[in-house]
């Protein structure tokens, strides 16, 4: 992230100081987290051993089911279907929400007009949107995606509206005085300011879409994680429910860790 040798003594490892931790403390902190996770696992094992019921499987049982489901290809298939829906609705919600949010942030009259609409959509329960989408659009893929997108857009809009309102007027004036032009202004002046808001909207958005998409699948699709969980629920197959949940959590965390966190760090690199 830093270029030029002079940085080395000017800025002594800002990142670590920023957290108020030394390298040693960081390592011991990691062990602390691992120990905490292990304790959770141990508690689960204890509880399962104590109840001794098929309704609370042990970690090992869950792991076995997980492996079996992966082998048959069932879990990868349904997980894949859900991820595909997630990707499509995420991209749609982010792009539409960003465009609308920026428009509201730039034009106060538009904002005043749509404020009450936004308030309404923010407060309609997700389940209601899902039911109405299925009723109006039929039990199909379009309805499923629409339901997720409609649920998510208001949140993205609100975040990006704030971001747009916070745009630095001084810098926009500078860009204008120096005749930057539209494209250059967008790329070098506006986008870097909106970027952190887009990332914030993405992170909260992912968490929200996850939860909604399962309900969407449960109510009106014949594949995907939500559909499978529904099936297991009817059969009271708790180990499978645990196994699918685990797979799900792992995928989400991987996304967060490998994609969103690095993007977030990139947005902050110029900060002191």
């Amino acid at each position: 992230m830093r270029r030029g040798s002079h940085d080395v003594y000017n800025v002594p490892s800002t990142e670590l100081i920023g957290f108020g931790l030394s390298l040693g403390a960081m390592t011991s902190l990691r062990w602390y987290s691992i120990a905490s996770a292990l304790l959770l696992l141990a508690l689960w094992q204890l509880a399962a051993g104590w109840t001794h019921s098929s309704l609370l499987p042990t970690p090992l049982q869950v792991f076995e089911v997980l492996v079996a489901e992966v082998r048959t290809g069932q879990l990868p298939y349904h997980l894949g279907v859900t991820l595909a829906r997630l990707l499509v609705s995420f991209v749609l919600a982010m792009s539409l929400g960003t465009a609308l949010g920026v428009a509201l942030g730039r034009h106060p009259w538009l904002d005043r007009f749509f404020d009450s609409w936004l308030l309404l959509f923010l407060n309609v329960p997700a389940l209601v949107t899902i039911i109405l989408c299925y009723v109006w659009l039929g039990l199909g893929e379009v309805a499923a995606i629409t339901a997720v997108v409609v649920n998510k857009i208001p949140n993205v809009m609100v975040t990006l509206r704030e971001g747009t309102r916070a745009l630095d007027r001084d810098l926009l004036e500078m860009a204008h005085a120096y005749a930057f032009g539209r494209l250059k202004t967008l790329r070098h002046v506006i986008w870097p300011q909106l970027y952190p808001f887009v990332i914030a909207a993405s992170r909260t958005g992912l968490a929200l879409i996850w939860k909604i998409i399962l309900v969407v699948e449960l109510l009106g699709r014949s594949n995907g994680m939500g559909y499978q969980l529904h099936l297991f629920f009817q059969m009271f197959n708790v180990p499978a429910i645990f196994a699918y949940t685990l797979a799900f959590v792992i995928v989400v965390q991987t996304l967060e860790f490998l994609v969103l966190k690095p993007l977030d760090a990139k947005a902050r690199r110029w900060r002191r």
Binding site: R3, G4, H6, D7, N10, V11, W270, R271, R272
Partner: peptide, 9 residues
């Protein structure tokens, strides 16, 4: 010497 630094520094 500071041409590759960010202005906040």
């Amino acid at each position: 010497g500071v041409q590759h630094q960010y202005p906040e520094r």
